[in-house]
Design a protein around this nucleic acid. Structure first.
Lengths: 133, 133
DNA sequence: TCATATTTGCAATTTTGTTGCATTTGTTTA
DNA sequence: TAAACAAATGCAACAAAATTGCAAATATGA
């Protein structure tokens, strides 16, 4: 339940935040800013910006940036919080339906670069998704 | 030489484009929009936007989007053109010096997802680079 | 060198994001 | 359950970033 999620991250439960979360929960793919805007209905732009910022800071949602200036957001996994975003999944963008999905990977690829200390790896994939293929 | 690069992609050789390319060639890391702006000196913003758009379209440069809303650009490999961007490298962002590098990989990870037709994979890594580590 | 399509630079406009502040609301605790 | 207080909201004003249309300038091929 959305209220629990907010409490877990120690921020207040407000109608607007519940509304935003409900838009995220309604879909299984990641949302762009305009997806959110149209999903919410009437809203104040400033409040939405601040809500998104808070959700990002608290580890409630994460940003997904894909080639072609595509910027989306999706709900985080349970383990995420303000300081740690640990997503053992890749982000897949379908060139056909334009949707972006978070897909869990059984084994996350290991990459070693001599001299570099790699702290985090993100994988972005593009192609045709299960529904469109 | 920069003029050759423009000719190869069938666009006109102009002082402004040469200037922009020279900024790219001067550095080994990827450039943000403001890096470019300060590298060029005096310029018209509209012309810069259009030049970037043209270079992206023609496959002369590619965009790199990293977590934290970091957006940079870098010169493409030889093989790139309007329709195909084939980068067998990963993008590494150093949390210390804030620079972003394209790093060639000897072996690019193979990823298979049941039902999905993966056409392209991009890997973004974060951590501490060779120079800072 | 000329003709022509491309590119540039400017002005105006639109879109996107930010700041400050007064009001409202959620939560804690007595 | 009421009061107290911090957090969140909504509005207005502002600032920054990006886009459009168009006239003038320029690169290129004949």
């Amino acid at each position: 339940m959305s209220a629990e999620l907010l409490k877990k991250h120690k921020i207040r439960v407000t109608p607007f935040r519940i509304k935003v979360l409900s838009v995220f929960k309604k879909t299984h793919s990641a949302l762009s800013l305009s997806d959110l805007e149209s999903g919410i209905g009437e809203f104040d732009r400033v409040t939405l910006y601040r809500t998104i910022k808070t959700f990002l800071d608290k580890g409630i949602i994460h940003e997904i940036l894909m080639p072609g200036d595509i910027k989306k957001m999706a709900l985080c996994q349970d383990g995420c919080n303000t300081h740690l975003h640990d997503h053992k999944h890749l982000h897949f963008h379908c060139d056909s339906c334009q949707e972006t999905f978070c897909i869990d990977l059984p084994a996350y690829p290991e990459i070693v670069l001599d001299g570099f200390d790699i702290k985090q790896i993100e994988i972005q994939a593009q192609g045709v998704c299960k529904n469109c293929g």
